[in-house]
Simulated scan of single mutants.
Amino acid sequence: MPLPKLTLLFRVEPGCLGPDGPQHIAPFCTLAMQLFPRLEPDRVQWQIVPRHDKRLDELEFHLTSRRLSEEQASQYLAQTGVSLPQLRERIDETLARLVERYLASLD
C-alpha cells in the first residue's frame, strides 16, 4: 500500500515579483499551482498561497490532518526516496524560473 502524499504548503513572498508584487501575487500563485504539482507528483500534494504574514513559515508540512515539523517531513520524504534539501533546491529553482517567466509576460 503506497504511503499517503505529504501536503506541502508553500507561501510565496509578494516581494519576489518586484515592487508591484502585491498586485500580482494571487495570479502568480494560481500559475504556480499549475507547475509545482509536477515536482514529485507521487509524493507531494502542493498548496501555494501568498505569504502576507512574514511570521508564518515559508514551507509548512502536513500529513493527513497533522502538521509535521521540518525534521518529521524530512524523515517522511526520505522513506519515499526524496531528500528534503534536494526538494527545497528544486522548489527554489522552479520558483526562480517561474518568476522570470511571469515578469517577462508582463512586459
Rank of each mutant, 00 (worst) to 15 (best):
P22F: 13
P19F: 04
T94R: 09
W46E: 05
P50W: 01
R88P: 03
L35K: 12
R88E: 14
I25S: 07
L98T: 07
T80K: 12
P37N: 02
Q79M: 10
T64G: 00
D20K: 11
E60V: 14
T30E: 15
L84Q: 07
F61K: 02
Y76I: 02
L39H: 10
P50C: 10
A96F: 13
D42P: 03
L59D: 01
E58I: 12
R55Q: 12
D42Y: 02
E60G: 13
D53M: 05
S65R: 03
S69F: 09
Q34Y: 09
Q72C: 00
W46S: 00
L35I: 14
C29M: 06
L56F: 04
Y76C: 02
P41Y: 11
H62V: 03
R66E: 11
V82W: 05
R90C: 10
W46T: 08
E89P: 00
T30Q: 13
L63W: 14
G18Q: 02
L68A: 02
D57E: 14
V49N: 01
I48Q: 02
E70S: 10
L39R: 08
R97G: 06
T64S: 05
L77K: 06
V44W: 08
P22V: 13
P50M: 13
L39C: 07
K54H: 09
K54S: 12
L35P: 01
E89Q: 14
Q72Y: 05
P22H: 14
S65D: 02
F61A: 03
Q34W: 12
D92R: 11
D53L: 12
L39A: 01
E93C: 01
S83H: 04
R38N: 03
L59I: 05
Q72K: 05
R97T: 13
Q72M: 14
W46Y: 13
L87H: 06
V82Q: 02
P50V: 08
T80R: 15
G21W: 00
R67G: 02
T80I: 06
R66N: 04
D92V: 01
I25A: 04
W46V: 08
L77S: 06
I48Y: 08
P19C: 04
E40G: 05
T80Q: 15
R51S: 05
E93A: 15
S74W: 03
Q47G: 07
H24A: 01
L87V: 10
P37C: 09
